[in-house]
Amino acid sequence: MSERSEELLDRLTQRFPDALEVVESIDQPTVVVKREELLAFAEHLKSVEGYVMFNDVLAADWFPAHPRFEVIYQVVHPESWQRFRFKCRIDEHEAVPSVVSVWPGANWPEREAYDLFGIVFEGHPQLTRIYLPDDWEGHPLRKDYPTGGNRID
């Protein structure tokens, strides 16, 4: 990891000493943030560190481990073109705070994660399905969802 990334991680861990855990990654600085501090961390990342560009919200299902889900956020600093990744670990019936109030671009990606993984984003303006039909049952990218096609005959 570059010197610049090390400095950034140092600054962040000093600012949020209890909420951050720096994790190993091969490409870009990555931290795991506690759910309670996620919104404050996001706000800080955008307004102080300048990561104003929001790329995507991803999710990973580590079934049957606990906590089961990992919500992954990708952000970009558009001037230095630095990328940054932060994750939040939650269990099945927990919710993560929505970061739409910080980055409006998170709106649709969060709906996608809700649609396919069933992750609830608290405070999202319109948390409805985005790809699948509204009356769909279940969340198909979960590990316990049946993998085969739905045969009618």
């Binding site: 198909p140 969802y145 049946p146 993998t147 085969g148 096609g149 739905n150 045969r151 009618i152 005959d153």
Partner: peptide, 16 residues
């Protein structure tokens, strides 16, 4: 027949 896409998203044969 659905082909290789044996998953939740694809109709397994348009004759349905």
């Amino acid at each position: 027949s659905g082909g290789v896409f044996d998953n939740y998203a694809i109709i397994q044969g348009v004759d349905h």
